[in-house]
Simulated scan of single mutants.
Amino acid sequence: MTLIRLNHYIAQAGIASRRAADTLIGQGRVKVDDKVVKAMGVKINPSTQKVSVLHEKSKVWKEIEEVKEKITYVFYKPRGYTTTLKGQRGEKTIAEFLPKNARLFPVGRLDKDSEGLLLLTNNGELALTLTHPRTHVEKTYHVWCRIPKEYTENAVESQLGRVRGGVKLDGIMTKPMRINIVGIKRGAVDLEITLTEGRNRQIRRVLGKINLEVTRLIRTKIGTLTLKEFNLQPGELYQLPADYTYE
């Protein structure tokens, strides 16, 4: 019989971090075998016991399903597809590229107009590690922009200097970002941008503040994982080995 701490089990399922799971337990929002558990340090047997969590908004108890085999895919998300498994009628989603009946969810998001590296997994703890603000996992993007024709390289560099340290989006400052010019010609510039956060359409909105219009955006790197390493084409998947080490 293999026992696991209740907060660890909740984290593995991708519901919350271990610390946040402790908060859920303390609030009486976790049941084990239909009984509310508030004590810390409780251990369970996932093979024989049922764990449910009370959803804050819907006020519905949802049972956690045990993940028997942890699977993670590297995916090249094509442009024009939403990073969801169930979209609106007629909407193209990444679900059409995934194995049938696979219980996977995306780690982070890329907006519909963006493309590139995306992780898909059933490993909730991995997803939390890679997306939690406290871990500062870097994500790198190659970004093509349309710029005013009168902008010289010095002018572009000057404008980029205004946003590298962060700008306000929705009243909250973004974290500093690395932005390097890859190439420039009249009316266009290529950039490499590295972030440690992923707010909604962040790069497009930040660059828009300095009159740079994004025409193409590809995520090329997450942590140490690179798109080039796996030589993927848009829409292709690669399953990572079970012993793959994330840094």
Rank of each mutant, 00 (worst) to 15 (best):
G161R: 04
V189T: 03
E150N: 13
G166C: 00
G166Y: 07
Y151I: 04
I184F: 13
G166M: 02
P148Y: 06
L191E: 06
R186Q: 14
M177Y: 08
N154P: 09
G166K: 00
I147G: 05
G166E: 09
G171F: 06
T174A: 05
L191I: 07
R178F: 01
N154R: 12
L195R: 03
G161V: 05
K185I: 12
T174C: 08
I184W: 12
K185E: 13
I181S: 01
V182I: 12
L195T: 08
L160S: 01
E157P: 09
V182S: 07
G187Y: 05
P176Y: 06
E150V: 09
P148H: 09
N180H: 14
K168P: 02
I179C: 10
K185V: 14
V182L: 14
I181A: 02
R162P: 04
D190F: 01
R162V: 12
E150K: 15
Y151T: 01
K185L: 13
R178D: 04
L169M: 09
T194N: 00
V182F: 11
M177L: 08
T152C: 00
G171N: 06
V167W: 05
L195Q: 03
D190C: 10
K175C: 11
E192G: 04
I147Q: 11
E153I: 06
R162D: 05
P176H: 11
E157W: 10
V182N: 10
G165A: 06
G187M: 02
Q159P: 05
E153N: 10
K185D: 13
T152K: 15
E157H: 10
T174R: 00
G171Y: 00
D190I: 03
E150M: 12
Y151F: 12
G165M: 03
K185Q: 15
L169A: 01
Q159S: 15
A155N: 15
T194D: 03
K175G: 12
I179T: 04
T194P: 06
R164G: 08
L191F: 06
G165E: 09
K175H: 14
I172E: 07
E153Q: 11
K185P: 15
M177R: 05
V167D: 01
I179Y: 01
R164I: 02
E150T: 12
L191C: 02
R186S: 14
G171P: 01
Y151C: 07
G187Q: 05
